[in-house]
Design a protein around this nucleic acid. Structure first.
Lengths: 404, 404
DNA sequence: CCAATTTTGTTTCAGGCTAGAACATAATGC
DNA sequence: GCATTATGTTCTAGCCTGAAACAAAATTGG
């Protein structure tokens, strides 16, 4: 052979028949639809013939990826349609280990929460092996409580740190005090049926819950920046509906964008990082509150007009404005979604932050950047981890059908 | 129908047969290969059978999208292979209107320059209609000089400003002093055969020349930030090999990332923008040189140790370090490519800039960010515009075959 | 209550495309 | 000159979709 294979590798998947792509198209169409579509609706939406759409839907129903739902009398004439819904017995497990909690959540293909466990607790400086063992037991318990016939399509694990995409190793998680942990090895033995949770960054996965509200269903924004205020400030960028994880998982280190080169020194070695102004501890210190105060208390004081609290919020808004304006200028993203402690402060931050962005973002004259609060579900990372696992099924249902 | 069609629209193209996708796969494989592959090489690389690869290749050869090249004696035994190459008679036209020049360039599917015209001239404050008429004549002249049998697949136009992706209207181009111009209307009448150049941002298109060195052939980096120093500083982000143009074409306003909130006022209304430190005029002023000095002169002086020139370069490196560190932290991109006047200074900027980035980018301890100079071809935007047009052909050759 | 109408879902058949195997072609090596 | 080896072509079976005919189950109207 003249040409080495490596030089010819072309990224795309190839399939000799159109069927896998069309199965995915049918499933995605059902997942995306606002109301439960019939086979005929799917045919109309995709441009296939009714025969083809029906055949593909039949296969998906047989494999459990679609459910035929009881028809509700529509009042229109003609044979009543059989509504299709994403299969309720195909689920995925999302796990999360954070400085403040352990969580597990099971979602089905419709995006409904089928099972849930949240265990608050201070895990800073905890032993990775012991903590992950507890999480594994929690997961096993959660899976054991699922109704018979449920099939677990996959699992994910949200971690507050840098995860190497290739090896799945948690390189470092400052809030937990962990480094170089391989969570798969510690978790898998505790889980039934060879389930192997794929680790991912908590902010990336939380951003996914905004990018898609249910498996295959796009959320309210195609392009946005997600900011997750935990102890530090993580973040993620969503472009074209895809969460950008960076070429090695380091994306979203929003907390260390430089706000002021002459500002206070940061533990990262740089100066004037965003975290020094809008991180949880920095905010509390500026407001004159002790370290462990819940962010809700800060929000209450600032809303009540307490001067140091208001000053802290104003300072955070200014710093966020400077840091985010840079990102918004570079990426042309119209929306910022605030999660974590920043989400709790969103109502107070929004006016000043939108004003800062309006001044510093070049395109603001045409389209003013908007600031929103993330829907405040606890342990959003667990939900995102489950969604990511289910996305694998939605993207290639043929593989799932062949395997079962 | 229960479900409104709009709610069911799923972005993907659907085709009832695998052929269009496989045609694209074969063409892309040939474009990507380091050496000219035979039909058998294509089969091996794609996983198709030789029969299938050969049939698809035959169709592409018949349509002019692939050429059969004279076999060079390989010395190996067996029937000699017929090498395949991207079709040399399918070309695209790239145009560029900039503050300092008008340019047109014709590229073939192999990425070779088939024709070229560059007309330097000061176009600041020029009349859009007159200037685009000149560009149209230049283009018509260029196309007229092409060898017989050449087929023009499309055209693009690089402009130094904000282009609305939907309408193709140039909203504003500060360096030209243009706003709300519709270049397609002014150009198309001068061009043969209903050719309608698609306008795009100059920095985005210049970044494309780094992202792909020839149609369908990935460049040296999958993920990088491109900085284009013209009069201001434009830029573009390439993620996963795709140039991110933003949800409304405003992406890449790198020049107005805030370096220092207490810095000098910028004409954009903000303060301490990168442009105030590393823009062409700011650099020349800091070096004590008059406004019109070519950047090469600054580079010579700084290389020679002239103190004000060195200070100017050092200041620019610091400002670039602060601004880029933010972007690199957020997007986890390992490479910065410098073009335009920053490219000419790349050698001088690199050491200080890499040092700044090493300190401010969180992932630097694992992977140090690298700074490179863009290959310094003049009017890179024109090349990028032609590449973009050719990418349409490479992405869906079936459409091209059907239409001819 | 029954027939016409309408819409959904199924069955059947033809056609396009790929995989696999056999075959033809054109070189090297002994 | 003949075996060997690799490329390219031809032929057939099988998978999948599109089109059209058909079956099923509701409403409408007398």
């Amino acid at each position: 052979m003249t040409v080495p294979v490596s030089s010819l590798e072309v990224g795309r998947a190839r399939s000799s028949t159109p069927r896998p792509a069309n199965l995915a198209l049918v499933l995605r169409t059902v997942c995306t639809a606002d109301t439960l579509p019939s086979r005929a609706d799917v045919a109309a939406a995709t441009g296939m013939t009714r025969a083809t759409a029906a055949r593909l839907a039949d296969d998906l129903v047989a494999g459990g990826l679609l459910d035929e739902v009881e028809a509700t009398p529509s009042g229109r004439r003609g044979r009543p349609a059989t509504p299709l819904a994403p299969g309720s017995r195909v689920v995925a497990l999302g796990l999360q280990a954070d400085a403040g909690l352990l969580a597990g959540r099971v979602l089905d293909l419709r995006g409904r929460v089928v099972g849930e466990r949240v265990e608050p607790g201070d895990l800073r400086g905890s032993d990775p092996a012991a903590t992950l063992a507890r999480l594994g037991d929690l997961a096993a318990d959660l899976l054991g409580g699922l109704p018979d016939g449920t099939r677990v399509a996959g699992a994910g694990l949200a971690l507050p740190g840098i995860v190497d995409g290739g090896t799945g190793v948690l390189l470092r998680a400052p809030n937990l005090g962990w480094s170089d942990v391989s969570p798969a090895d510690l978790l898998a033995p505790r889980l039934p049926g060879g389930l192997d949770p794929v680790p991912g960054n908590e902010a990336d996965l939380a951003a996914r819950t905004v990018a898609e509200t249910a498996p295959g269903r796009p959320g309210p924004h195609r392009d946005f920046v997600y900011l997750s205020g935990q102890i530090g400030i993580g973040g993620a960028t969503v472009l074209d509906g895809r969460v950008m994880c960076g070429s090695s998982g380091w994306a979203g280190e929003m907390g260390h964008v430089c706000v002021d080169p002459d500002g206070p020194a940061c533990r990262c070695g740089s100066t004037g990082c965003l975290e020094q102004y809008a991180g949880r501890d920095a905010l509390l210190a500026a407001a004159g509150l002790p370290r462990g105060t819940p962010p809700g208390e800060l929000a209450r004081r600032a809303a009540g007009g307490d001067p140091p609290a208001c000053a802290a919020v104003a300072g955070a808004a200014r710093a966020l404005g400077i840091a985010l304006a840079g990102v918004l200028n570079v990426l042309d993203v119209p929306v910022v979604v605030l999660g974590g402690h920043l989400g709790e402060l969103a109502g107070l931050l929004r006016p000043a932050l939108e004003e800062h962005l309006g001044r510093r973002v070049l395109s603001a004259r045409w389209r003013r950047p908007r600031v929103e609060a993330a829907p405040g579900a606890p342990a959003a990372g667990a939900t995102g981890a489950a969604l990511r696992a289910l996305a694998d099924v939605v993207d290639d249902p043929a593989r799932w059908l062949d395997a079962h």
